[in-house]
Amino acid sequence: MKTFAFFVLYMLLAVVVILLAVLLGADGAWYFAWLVGTAMIVLIAAAGAAMLDAQEEQAAGRVAGKPEPRT
């Protein structure tokens, strides 16, 4: 249920972002937007991976001395 509530919340957030972008960018400088947007998307994806590393290290730290099972 909690997941569903967050799902609805994030979907609404996505819709709001799209609406804002549509209104701001009716006749947008899209080439420029692509350049900035692509760099941003790539860096956010990269940051997400680094965050996962931190999360796993933290989790491993909590289970004292026992590292995450490796495959």
């Binding site: 972008a21 549509v22 009716a26 998307i41 991976a49 495959t71």
Partner: peptide, 29 residues
């Protein structure tokens, strides 16, 4: 390959959600 899969999934999810929002916006344009 859990280490590889979890990290790839995380990156793909972030990359994908932002790109999908962009695709829809540009579709409207």
């Amino acid at each position: 390959h859990m280490e590889l899969a979890k990290r790839s999934f995380r990156m793909a999810a972030l990359y994908g959600v932002l790109a999908t929002v962009g695709v829809i916006t540009l579709g409207d344009a």
